[in-house]
Design a protein around this nucleic acid. Structure first.
Lengths: 251, 251
DNA sequence: CGAGCCGTTGAGGGGATTCAAGCTCAGTGG
DNA sequence: CCACTGAGCTTGAATCCCCTCAACGGCTCG
């Protein structure tokens, strides 16, 4: 059991490095403005909410929130990757989804429910913490916010089911290849992807870290993957697609 | 590839046996009224929507809707079980979630999106077909409908992630035991559960049907499970829990 | 009755796990 | 400076669980 278990409330998380003072120009010029939750909001409403939005920065493995805790905020992921995980009855963790820039985290707090997953940073992340009450207020006014919220929920549902359908079946090689493809989508189009620790790959794909290591090593030798420092790697899209296609031909 | 692929539009589904004439007393006296989508609706609104709601009955394996089709209705499941499945690139189907009585199906149509899964009847089912436009209209009026809709989305998201976390990892015996527990929750508390075909168990748990058969047989010999006609079975809750606990002790 | 679907059971092989050892690398402190 | 440490990665050998292939039996239906 990791020491992190002691962090019960997200607000008091020791990893949390909130700036406290929101950046006035942040929302209007935000890099993910076009995909953010408030994209349909008029400038007046935007002004009204800005003082309540707080920037949160977390290091790798920092907790955004914890399963079972009834929080009072949603988070918009500005940069980095966040994983959603759950502990089974034996204390082993299972990763059920990944979130990338622009995604909304912890929507269940809008319904005054406890968070259903542990959310932790895969990379250093930057988030906007938005009080649930604020979103609830804006949503009750005219202006299309509810539809925007529903779209976020549907996005999350689709992502969760895609995760199940693609990454939890087939032989180890197929799972690792599909995971790489998935990571490629989440990263920017610069070809650089974040490469999880073997232990985390195991928790994503239900493999042991040894098996994950063997698969990654093999792909490196085949030229599909090249490793860089800081858990970064570049993948050869052509080789990756070819490898994926070869899986289906064999069957 | 099954012949069912030919069914492109849900409206023209040959398995569909719509009554056409909605039952006037249906909504007010509905067995799942307390858990249904419209539970917060006032009687006047209820009267207004009733003429547009249509009862749909499907036999086993009947399609509620199909992935990729942009439908114009959501469905409330009144009785029976529905599975959500997707085909992978090799044409093999993977079941990503089950829905039971009271659940809402095809919510993505409210966002004018295509259905993201194939939804098929596990048992004979009875559904209410509700035009998306109707729900959108009611949701735009005051009365708490949006919140009710968001709650449905969150329920679906939680169910999908629970499915991943619980049923897609561990050895075959553990998966089958957890599936039985899951089916126990979906069924009524009479102890009778619906038992899927071995082929479907395989698609749910990523096992071959032979492996599923061996596991089920073993559990039957152990007294955890007793089979009845019509894919029905009764499970011994005590024995099931004991078997589940023994899994963790061993590890 | 034969065809097809569904379930059962066996034998054999293969892929993933398990257990184990050794490696690199960063941080630490003697 | 370098041994020491711990976390993460790699690799090997043996085991085991699940898959594959196959045959067979019960059942329903045309």
């Amino acid at each position: 059991m990791p020491v992190d278990v002691l962090r019960t409330i997200d607000v008091s998380c020791p990893h949390r490095l909130a700036t406290g003072r929101p950046d006035a120009a942040l929302c209007a010029n935000c890099a993910i403005r076009h995909s953010a939750l408030f994209k349909t909001l008029d400038p007046a409403s935007l002004d009204r909410m800005r003082p309540h939005v707080e920037t949160v920065r977390l290091p790798v493995d920092g907790a955004v929130f914890q399963r079972g805790v009834k929080g009072s905020a949603v988070y918009t992921l500005r940069s980095g990757l966040v994983r959603f995980e759950r502990l089974d009855e034996r204390g082993l963790s299972r990763i059920v989804r990944l979130a990338g820039p622009g995604e909304l985290l912890g929507q269940e707090s809008l319904l005054d429910r406890a968070y259903v997953d542990d959310a932790r940073a895969c990379t250093p992340v930057e988030l906007c913490r938005i009080p649930s009450g604020l979103v609830q207020t804006l949503a009750s006014e005219p202006g299309g916010m509810p539809r925007e919220l529903m779209a976020r929920w549907q996005d999350a549902l689709d992502a969760a089911q895609t995760w199940t359908a693609e990454l939890t079946c087939g032989p180890a090689r197929a799972r690792v290849l599909k995971l790489l493809a998935h990571l490629g989508h989440l990263a920017g189009p610069d070809g650089k992807v974040w490469l999880p620790r073997l232990h985390d790959i195991g928790n994503m794909l239900d493999l042991t870290l040894e098996t994950a290591s063997r698969q990654i090593s093999a792909l490196r030798k085949e030229g599909v993957l090249r490793r860089h420092p800081l858990r970064s790697a570049s993948i050869d899209p052509v080789a990756l697609q070819a490898a994926l296609r070869k899986l289906n031909d064999a069957a």
